[in-house]
């Protein structure tokens, strides 16, 4: 596994064989965006905000139908045109997405990092988000203003970097093989609750642990004496 440098990234972007090609579209300014060891990604036009007044809490252990319904009720999607402002207030968390739509060949892995210039303003964009081989779609960005003054974001700004790592051989099970048009086109909400099997395991363990100390009628009788 080795990190890809500019020349290798360029070669993959120009690859004629679609199965081996790296797609990053649109690349508005390829010369600027493809750096020595990464590709700069721009902020897209869609945002998801969670409306606080409509939410009690989010429990990933909840049954996924309930969590989905809760999420979609609380989520508010906003579209902002290229260059228009989207103001992120101190402490505010929203989901954004990259402007670019990506298709990774099955032998590439990616990692999305915040650009340091934004980090110095207190903006967290991505926390080493992994991009799996075969990924197709835009990347969801978790945007948090950790500073003390509002930050004006504008779709089209370069906010993140994509580092690419190449493997000697392609994976046998690339990410996201399924419905043809299922690729994310905008930011996506939490999908933790969809990991149903793990939720069931954790719930079972929790039940067993608490069974020891659970109240019983005989315990209550003892206390009463």
């Amino acid at each position: 596994m080795s990190v890809l440098l500019r020349e290798q990234i360029d070669a993959l972007l120009d690859e004629r064989d679609n199965d081996k090609r790296l797609v990053i579209t649109p690349l508005l300014d390829r010369e600027e965006q493809v750096g020595p060891g990464s590709v700069d990604l721009r902020l897209g036009t869609e945002f998801i905000e969670v409306s606080r007044q409509d939410s009690t809490s989010i429990d990933p252990f909840g049954h996924h139908e309930d969590v989905d319904a809760q999420q979609s009720e609380a989520d508010r999607k906003t579209y902002v045109a290229l260059g228009d402002p989207f103001i992120l207030h101190p402490g505010q968390f929203v989901l954004g997405a990259t402007l670019e739509f990506l298709v990774l060949p099955p032998n590439l892995v990616g990692q999305v990092l915040s650009r340091s210039s934004w980090g110095r303003l207190g903006l967290l964009v991505a926390t080493a988000v992994a991009v799996q081989p075969g990924f197709r779609g835009v990347l969801t960005l978790e945007l948090v203003n950790t500073g003390s003054v509002p930050i004006v974001l504008r779709p089209g700004l370069r906010v993140a970097q994509l580092q690419l790592w190449s493997s000697d051989r392609p994976t046998d099970s690339p990410y996201g093989v399924g419905a043809k048009y299922s690729a994310p086109l905008g930011p996506e909400s939490n999908r933790l609750a969809w990991e149903g099997r793990e939720r069931d395991v954790l719930e079972a363990i929790t039940r067993r642990m608490h069974a020891r100390s659970a109240d019983s009628d005989s315990d209550s009788d003892t206390e009463a004496e």
Partner: peptide
Amino acid sequence: TAFNAVVVKALEMSSIVTAW
């Protein structure tokens, strides 16, 4: 619906790239 969403996204890309 899913396919139309892809086409709408392409319309967005077109407006952005054209302006750029």
